[in-house]
């Protein structure tokens, strides 16, 4: 699938230690290349799938202006997906196949996007929570990635994701002015907050992709990134008088999750089954692997135009 990566791991590590970035596949080792493709795939798939997820919710925009802003956000997300897939293409990946022919269940975005966003409130909460998660992850990658072309491309992404977060926050403030709006926001927070906590993946004691750290694919660990996200998400929510199952433990210098975590999730009803207590991460991985309610539909939406043209070409 990918072109040869002629360097050895030792070459790559030496280059990184001397403070240089990896600029092209000729400077990569096979394991660096494989790891980079894996992390780029997650990033690209996540940006891509957010487009149909946000588009569905944008149908419920309260007015034309709001619909226009949602379309602008979707344009940004598609642009970010484009950047990551084009980088992969330069690494020898057949991105046409990857985007337009891959079975839905093999897309690598977080499970959260498989749960439908059904209202304008859920869309703006996704801007506030999900785009913030993306911002934390990509910010970390921007700081630490050793792959030069990606690092440079992320300047644009960072700027635009900041705009999405603000969009979410501004709308939260606006909607929170009415009692009905407050109820709706709280209901969205109740299922979306923990789903975003899950986004950051297995806790550090269960998982360590050492290559991710050695090769500088990531700076912070999963647990650190989860903390980074909570350090701005929780104060935002609390400043507006909403509740989340997490609090700042000032003495310990970290945020503590106050609900069973990880927990069983009823995707159809968008409800956490906290009453059943915590579950194992194996069970969570199983749910992720099965994917959620919107997976097939979103991927079908993405692949529709290209597959339609191919059918015409064969007719």
């Amino acid at each position: 699938m990918a072109v040869a990566a002629p360097a050895t791991d030792a070459d790559v590590l030496e280059r990184i230690r001397s403070g240089k970035l990896i600029e092209h596949v000729g400077q990569m080792s096979p394991s660096y290349l494989e790891g980079m493709i894996r992390i780029l795939t997650v990033s690209a798939d996540t940006e891509l799938i957010s487009a149909p997820a946000y588009y569905n919710a944008a149908q419920a925009a309260p007015h034309l202006n709001a619909f226009g802003s949602a379309t602008a956000i979707i344009q940004d997300e598609l642009g970010h997906a484009h950047i990551a897939y084009r980088l992969m293409r330069d690494l020898g990946v057949d991105t046409e196949q990857l985007i337009y022919e891959r079975p839905a269940a093999r897309f690598k975005y977080p499970y959260a996007f498989d749960v439908p966003l059904d209202s304008w409130v859920e869309l703006v909460m996704a801007n506030a929570f999900y785009d913030r998660a993306g911002f934390c992850l990509l910010g970390d990658i921007y700081q630490t990635t050793t792959f030069g072309p990606w690092k440079r491309a992320l300047v644009k992404v960072d700027k635009e994701e900041t705009f999405h977060l603000r969009h979410g926050e501004n709308w939260m403030k606006k909607i929170a002015q009415s009692a009905e709006g407050r109820d709706e926001i709280q209901r969205a927070i109740d299922w979306m907050f923990v789903l975003t906590l899950e986004w950051f993946g297995l806790p550090d004691d269960l998982k360590r992709h050492s290559e991710q750290l050695d090769f500088g694919f990531k700076g912070q660990s999963n647990d650190q990134l989860r903390q980074t996200w909570m350090s701005t998400a929780v104060p935002l929510v609390e400043s507006l008088g909403f509740h989340v199952p997490a609090h700042d433990d000032a003495a310990a210098g970290r945020y503590v999750i106050d609900c069973p975590f990880p927990a069983e999730f009823d995707a159809e009803n968008k409800r956490w089954l906290f009453e059943e207590g915590p579950i194992s991460w194996d069970r969570v991985l199983e749910r992720w692997k099965q994917r959620g309610p919107m997976n097939a539909q979103y991927v079908d939406t993405i692949q529709r135009g290209k597959q339609g043209l191919e059918r015409l070409a064969d007719a």
């Binding site: 344009q75 642009g79 484009h82 950047i83 084009r86 293409r89 491309a153 644009k156 635009e160």
Partner: peptide, 23 residues
């Protein structure tokens, strides 16, 4: 350099560059 676009047509390449790199 701000990025790359794929297009077999120069007109489309212009549109794509303008709309993708609009930061």
């Amino acid at each position: 350099h701000v990025g790359t676009v794929a297009a077999d047509d120069e007109r489309l390449a212009q549109v794509y560059a303008r709309t993708i790199f609009n930061e």
